[in-house]
Design a protein around this nucleic acid. Structure first.
Lengths: 347, 347
DNA sequence: CTGCTGAGTGTAAACGTTTGCCTAAACTAA
DNA sequence: TTAGTTTAGGCAAACGTTTACACTCAGCAG
């Protein structure tokens, strides 16, 4: 079908190997010959066949990106397009392609990854989540296949390359912000406890409370997959407490939006009755009502760094495992306000 | 590195070709031999090398997915993960891989696609958008490379396979819903006019007005990329009109959320002062405040159908071009209410 | 016993590259 | 001049498959 190196060689009056070396810009080929070959390539519309190349080099120029299970709505989180954007940008620059893998179940995802790895379809893998006891991660680790995690691995923290935020500190700081505003009863709503990110954010929240001499009541913490019913339940339970929270730390912007909606069903308004802070600073956070005070975790950069780190690892087999911490920044918007004794009593 | 077909052959005491035929489950190999070979494969941990296979078959088992430019925030639209989910599901089933392509600029995207196509990296391509005079589409069309568009091509409608909703009808029906509720002053806010989907939804909107004997005033229509400022401008202009709209047809749920926010800045509330309907029914539409009355366009199915259609085309070169219309369904929620003369006067 | 058929396998060429090694020519140094 | 060195490029093997064709052997008809 396509034009091959041989045809170019013939047209330029050289051997195929010469053409190959021209493509690689090998210094052993004279400028004159290079010019001639390049001309022939252009005229014939030559493009290298990557499969043939991959075969002999035993390296595809592509990296696998593993999304979490698409079964839950988490996938609709704008986090993913944004992190993909970061990954893609540096991959594109370094001429790498992106092979995507998703699946409804963990089993399906694992299958996909195995197909990638065993079939030599990719040179490395980026994991877009990090769950406790994750089969995919275990598989890659055992195979000693290059991979990096966006987030924090639950074990082997210093033999697995990962790029993450300092979620503990971020959570501590944003919780402290609530405390500074005068809030004393502060709840936490997070996703599955199996996710490292949830654990870290909860840890930071607890640290802040402790530091301020506040009690970290268990009944103030809630974990939910955040389907709609989960959100309702969380809000219902938290605000039926004898002393309901006046501030909420929520581990994801999208969750916040759902919670705000639920609160309204209960006749509570943000920020008048409840102050809310959350994480990620997705685009939505800015245009929702009210705009959210949230931690900008720099999603794009997470992706870009992961991509860069992985490719370095691929290109240099004994590049050490790295831990890359992307800085965060708190965005102050309108979902928080100083505790108002008046309303606090009303609640 | 990996185990090859030859090693399996040796272990099983057969020729490489026999192993290959066992993999393909060729009926000419006796059951006994198959069993023996399969055992050897398992014992050695054999996995076929897809690059070698692609090379000789000149077909990778993978399809390219082209996202729109990541420069704008459109990419953060949950539409994409969802359509990807659909694509991925059927691709996975049919053992196809997904190669992703994005870029900041149209030029970058084109480069990516060319790399896919010229390098024989993919067997076909799915375009996740359809813009007027799109270079990528033109390229694929000229190359006569298998591709399908999610959305509607601007030209060559019946030689280009595409899967779409009947956006005209959907828009007409949801506009009629507003009319039935008593609204007479109905505005339209849409994205770029270069997008086929915007045009169709506007057309349906106009048709509904016409059918009801209402005037389709030009100053009621607004196109914006929907960055935050765009939304503000739209709202500002529409509601400075001598007779501001009481109903709004908005071509995307995310835009609606932004508009609702903007309206509040102007002291207008949904649905009390303004009724809003929009399109897509992303997860957010359900948990936002108020929940949106919107057209469920069945995003997942759009993706699944596109994937199926493309693979059919790949596997059978002279499969005809198809047009697949995925049904929609209007979800009635709380962003609309009957026109209230009272409030209508107040506005 | 010969020749034929068909079932089951093997042989080897092909796919389009890359790359280690070889060689011819040109140059250098004595 | 000669021997040695460099330079520029060719030759051919290799990467791991698939597949057209060839082959062998059993069984069977004549």
């Amino acid at each position: 079908m396509g034009v091959t190196i041989k045809e170019v060689a013939k047209a330029a009056g050289v051997a195929p190997s010469t053409v190959s070396r021209v493509i690689a810009d090998n210094p052993r080929i004279s400028p004159a010959t290079k010019k001639r070959v390049r001309k022939a390539m252009k005229e014939l519309g030559y493009h290298p066949n990557v499969n043939a190349r991959s075969l002999v080099r035993s390296s595809t120029q592509s990296i696998g990106v593993v999304m979490p299970s698409s079964a839950d709505k988490a996938l609709q989180n704008p986090f993913f397009p944004e992190v993909l954007r970061g990954i893609s940008a540096v991959a594109h620059n370094l001429e790498y392609s992106l092979l995507l893998s998703t699946g409804e179940t963990e089993e399906e995802i694992l299958e996909g990854v195995q197909r990638m790895v065993y079939g030599t379809r990719v040179d490395g893998v980026i994991l877009l989540y990090s769950r406790l006891k994750d089969k995919v991660m275990e598989f890659l680790y055992e195979q000693n296949f290059p991979f990096v995690i966006v987030g924090k691995p639950n074990e082997n923290t210093d033999t697995i390359s990962h790029v993450d935020n300092d979620n503990i500190r971020a959570s501590r700081e944003i919780t402290e912000h609530l405390i500074e505003l005068g809030h004393r009863c502060i709840g936490f709503i997070g996703g599955s406890k199996d996710l490292a990110v949830t654990v870290d954010r909860m840890t930071g929240y607890k640290e802040a409370l402790k530091k301020a001499g506040l009690q970290a009541k268990k009944e103030y913490r809630f974990h939910t997959e955040f389907l709609k019913s989960g959100g309702r339940k969380a809000v219902h339970e938290l605000f039926s407490l004898p002393e309901p929270p006046t501030g909420l730390v929520i581990s994801d912007d999208l969750m916040s939006i759902g919670v705000i909606n639920m609160l309204e069903e209960f006749g509570l308004y943000v920020p008048e009755d409840v102050s809310i802070v959350s994480f990620n600073n997705v685009y939505m956070a800015e245009v929702t009502r009210p705009p959210l005070t949230t931690v900008d975790i720099n999603i794009y950069e997470l992706g870009a760094q992961a991509s860069k780190c992985l490719i370095e690892k691929i290109q240099n087999k004994n590049e050490p495992a790295k831990r890359i911490i992307v800085p965060f920044e708190i965005k102050h918007r309108l979902s928080t306000q100083p505790l108002n004794e008046e309303t606090s009593k009303r609640a």
